[in-house]
Write a protein that binds this DNA or RNA. Structure first.
Lengths: 235, 235, 235, 235
DNA sequence: GATGAATGAGTCTTCATTCAT
DNA sequence: CATGAATGAAGACTCATTCAT
């Protein structure tokens, strides 16, 4: 099992090996169920070395979260096309997001499933990252609303809700896509559906937003009309 | 602490007390960190009794998941207005969902955060419930597409993706709404924003879907029309 | 080894067994070197039971110190003859002290050697007891000075110093007597030299070496003259 | 914060640095709690070097004990005035003892508190030194008895007991004096009370409380006179 | 001469689980 | 029906000690 034993490796390298092992193990077992013994074994080193370099299980988990958070944010940031329209930026960002989570399913699992579930030191870290992303999305939605000529129509609180919904939808899709990928992957598929998933996401969210910024609202009786009384009926 | 000691309680009642205590404790601490000791203490019974009735920690957790799953599905099902249009049904279902999760935050936390994070026996159970809900949503989406005259155009896989996105968005909003509710609650507020949250969700998803079933697609360049240059409506 | 296994023992009894085992083990090995494993084994129970009843190694050590301190103080207090002169009281107290330490060498070792050597939580506890004893001795010395008609001549600080020296001497003698007893004991000697040791101590401290070398001896009845009836003075 | 890194230091010096660090650390933490890591860090060298020079923790502790024992014995021996009377010699020895322990509190703590508490290899070493000192005191007491014309009256066993009591008292006073000194020291006070402490000790032991309460005082020059001016001089 | 890299062994502590009453 | 008494097994963490450079 594990990698080939290689002795006398410089610290930086060993540290990375350990973090990789930790990501894998935390993703597979969860924070509590993952034992330092297993992490050390997966990393191909002895337990004391893990403690020497990473101090404690908590610190190790924290470090993992930080590393994976930063990697994810960096991937999304790098993917966003700087000069584009809001929808284009959102799309490229989503593509980066789906590509990264598909390529690093364990890291994503740690962030999305484990870190949020295990008490304050960690939940806070992920929440911070998520807030960062939600803020970015909120900004894009605002910009999109302006581009669509809808000035100040959407209450801030409403936009924030939409952003949360969008991010939640994206997270859910990322998980879904990963599961499907994991099962179906018989060999080396290049993170297959990042583009497709991003498109699905845009279709789901953007077209809806398009109408929304146009003044439409959904209401129990059907689509509501806007202020001017124009029909917004679905039929 | 713990409940008031009461002897000679019928089994069904005792069992419910234990399950309630378990839900509370699992939600608070997580599966691994919750100890049978604490659960027994919170339930106000001795540990052996917990084992006598619920067999093991795994069984206990399973039973909790089953109970909470069924309660959630029942709540959503009951909320759906039977004879209405697809959007109306989705809306009422969402309202039921948000109302139930707001009323039972611990149960929802166990389902959403804990059960999925702790390995196979449990993740599967929640996945089953989620599948049930996604299937229901998928069905509604299909019906909506038909209502909109869009016959068979949406690939099944696409609809499934949308359903997942929708459910993910709803889950994300549920968490968001609960957190905000928790903070703002100064006394006894009747899970206030279930309706609002459902509306936000519909605005986010449905209006988008409306266009979608109308043949619109988002594409890198913006909303695309179909090949013939006709207005995006596909009739 | 250890006592005969006896199952299902009431808590109070088990707790005492554990404390006895702890005293023995702490005395033999020292605080740090004593392992909870060994203590449990000596007590004839499993380790978790020790933790269930005594909480932690620190708590266990603290409890041991408290129990042994109280036992020692009680023994000395009980031995002091209430109505006697100061020297008589001191003598009887010393006898009680030496008798108790001879009968409970492990307890004494824990108090005198281990507790004071292992950091703040514990050193403080023993210091408190020691202070109590030193205060008692100081009081006796003051009374003795008065009885001897020496009013206010001895500065308080000086008396305190003397009391410390006296207690230190007694402690040293207790250790010395125990070691000699341990080695020499081939069978069951009833704590042999408590009276002798107390007498030695009184000769040393009370009458002073000066008089002692002049042939005087302290005895329960007062200062003794030598065989020839010469006055005790050496000059 | 160890010492400033200095390369290529002769072995003898490095060894002394390590021993100093060890004394400090053992005194602060105790034998078991002191880690070779900390000792190496305090000494400002790497751990392997400590092992290269001092072999093992046990060896290191042994070496420390030996060094400190010898230093203490040397200090006492050097302080004793060779040609004086027995009391004078005892007094000067005590002064040397108190001065040395005040100047080297860590060394004294290691000898008095740590070495005796941690099992056989070490307790024996300190016992040997103590025996040496007790023997010296015993000898002095014998000489004093002779000087006083008391030939063979004091049983050897009795004298040994007295010597032990005396040494114990001195040790207790040393600790007491040091603690009081530590607290009161606002800057650089030259171990102030060695003389005072020695005087207290002599008053306590040599003259005896009996004479003391009669108004006599021991002083470097011999017994002091009482209030009425009667001579109390021995010679 | 000196050290960064590495570990086997052991310690405290906790927990799910079971009897005997 | 209900529980006080008890434990096997495992997990986080530390430490004295050694190579290879």
């Amino acid at each position: 099992m594990g990698a080939v034993k290689s002795k006398r490796v410089p610290r930086a390298v060993r540290e990375r090996q350990m973090l990789d092992a930790a990501v894998l193990t935390f993703a597979r077992r969860g924070y509590r169920a993952a034992s330092m013994d297993e992490i050390a074994e997966v990393a191909g080193v002895s337990k004391p070395l893990v403690y020497l370099y990473l101090n404690s299980k908590e610190d190790l988990f924290s470090t993992v979260i930080r590393r994976e958070s930063e990697a994810l944010v960096a991937a999304v940031t790098a993917a966003v096309e700087p000069g584009g329209t809001a929808d284009r930026q959102l799309w490229s960002g989503l593509e980066g997001f789906f590509a990264h989570t598909a390529e690093h399913p364990d890291g994503w699992a740690v962030l999305h499933q484990q870190a949020r579930t295990h008490g304050e030191p960690f939940a806070h870290q992920v929440a911070a990252m998520r807030t960062e992303i939600v803020a970015f999305v909120t900004e894009l939605l605002g910009a999109a609303a302006k581009e669509a000529g809808c000035v100040g129509e959407l209450a801030e609180r409403e936009v924030a809700g939409l952003a949360h919904a969008l991010v939640g939808a994206a997270e859910s899709l990322a998980e879904w896509a990963n599961v499907r990928t994991d099962e179906g992957a018989s060999g080396e598929r290049e993170h297959p559906s990042a583009k497709d998933t991003a498109a699905t996401m845009m279709n789901f969210a953007w077209t809806g937003l398009g109408r929304l910024t146009g003044g439409e609202r959904w209401a129990p009786g059907g689509l509501a009309v806007d202020r001017e009384g124009r029909s917004a009926a679905r039929g």
